[in-house]
Amino acid sequence: MISSIIITIGILFNLLGCLGLIRFPDVYNRLQSATKCVTLGTCSILLGVLIHYGFVEIGVKALLSIPLLFFSATVGAHALVKGSYKAGIKLGDKSVKDDYKEEVR
């Protein structure tokens, strides 16, 4: 029962993250919403698997994949942001500040 509630919360966060992927105007803001919300949502789904089964084989594997997912998602987001800035993609119209410009060229 508790595991179903936690999985529902995780899917709710996934929904909000994917909504942000559709709605936000430029690639940097899309990455902001998608990375944070989808990573936390998937982590809470895996936590739901752990609570549903307890500390047996499947639960321990689900618990171990939480830090794996966490580090791979953050490093991937960092690489994507840096790569898309180096590829010359402009920030959106609403942006107010860009300190990185004089550092690159």
Binding site: C18, R30, A34, T35, T42, L69, L80
Partner: peptide, 30 residues
Amino acid sequence: TVADRMVGIDIFGILVVGICAILAILTDRM
């Protein structure tokens, strides 16, 4: 742009992990 497509692919990969976890509870396969 190309970067938008890559963000989509990255997020798609994370969502598939969630699908696998839910299927593991539903079908009871480890």
